[in-house]
């Protein structure tokens, strides 16, 4: 177990280092932060002063080494646009994003898994077809289209809910539904496929032939075995809790990490972008680690090092 965890940890650190390096190179080679932050009409003297103040006039490799060294010592840098520590800026936005992504995750789980299971257990019925129709629709409609449609109906036409902003819990309803519906559709499709595969296995037939009640077969044999691919998808969803609402936050003017990321990338505010990427990578790696551990809990063969 210790070897397993150590290996995962090393891989996680390497992944994060690669992510940071990639972001640094791409962002620094694709735009000058001084010009972007100081605006197009800024006098050249001001741009030069800005570059000097932030060390942007140093060779790229030197900037990279300085940045990496700082990260190693726990300093994620300061925002060139805001002047404050990047971690403080990002930290301020995390609650807003979680206020959307956590309820949306609950909707995804609460709707997607039962719908997928139900569709699989009633394969080829009208209910199955309806669930799959809705799942395909939810999966294929981009979130910004769905978001705007919801706004048109519930904010503009009916006037029941606000169209955007972050002033009360009512402002969160439409963005949460927008994110929840898409994710639920994905989960429903995966859950149905996994269940259908498991339901076709010989051990399900054997259990039924032995007279085990169908509900017990489903609960005791089908669901745990179908859980592995579903848990993988849920792992991705948990991993994207921090920055998984970029589009929805833009559509609904929700000041979360996603909006901050968009603005920071547009301004090449390197420290902020990399801070967010670090957090995203760390969340994703942690979620994957938990998923790996869950695999072992769900399937004893994986715990013993066997293959599936």
């Amino acid at each position: 177990m210790l070897r397993f965890l150590t290996l995962r940890l090393v891989r996680a650190v390497l992944t994060i280092a690669l992510v940071v390096t990639f972001a640094f190179v791409v962002l620094r080679l694709s735009g000058d932060p001084a010009l972007l932050i100081m605006s197009v009409d800024a006098p050249p003297e001001a741009v030069a002063a800005f570059r000097k103040a932030w060390g942007l006039d140093e060779p790229l490799w030197q900037q990279y080494l300085s940045y990496f060294g700082a990260i190693a010592s726990g300093d994620l840098g300061r925002s060139m646009r805001d002047g404050r520590d990047a971690i403080v800026l990002v930290g301020e936005r995390i609650p807003a994003t979680l206020a959307l992504t956590v309820p949306a995750l609950l909707i995804k789980l609460g709707l997607g898994i039962p719908a997928g299971v139900y569709a699989a257990l009633h394969r080829n019925s009208w209910a199955d077809r309806l669930v799959m129709f809705l799942a395909v629709a939810g999966f294929t409609v981009p979130s910004f289209v769905l978001g705007l449609l919801l706004v048109l109906v519930f904010a503009v036409q009916l006037g029941w809910l606000p169209s955007g902003g972050q002033d009360s819990w009512r402002h969160a309803v439409l963005p949460v539904i927008t994110m929840g519906v898409g994710g639920a559709a994905v989960l429903a499709r995966f859950t149905r496929s996994a269940m259908l595969e498991v339901l076709g296995q010989s051990y399900i037939r054997t259990a039924s032939a032995k007279g085990v009640p169908w509900a017990q077969v489903v609960r005791g044999h089908a669901l745990p075995n179908a859980a592995i691919p579903t848990v993988t998808i849920i792992g991705f969803m948990v991993g994207s809790l921090i920055a998984g609402a970029v589009v929805v936050e833009s559509v609904f003017s929700w000041p979360g990490v996603g909006r901050l990321l968009v603005v920071a990338v547009a301004n090449r505010d390197l420290a902020v972008v990399q801070c967010i990427l670090l957090l995203v990578a760390a969340t994703m790696v942690t979620a994957n680690l938990v998923v790996d551990l869950l695999y072992g809990a769900l399937d004893p063969r994986l715990r013993r090092g066997g293959s599936r």
Partner: peptide
């Protein structure tokens, strides 16, 4: 003053009376 990046969101908010 509220920052609303998307033009469609600004128009929708105007029509919604916000």
């Amino acid at each position: 003053f509220l920052e609303v990046a998307e033009v469609s969101s600004r128009v929708n908010g105007l029509f919604a009376g916000e």
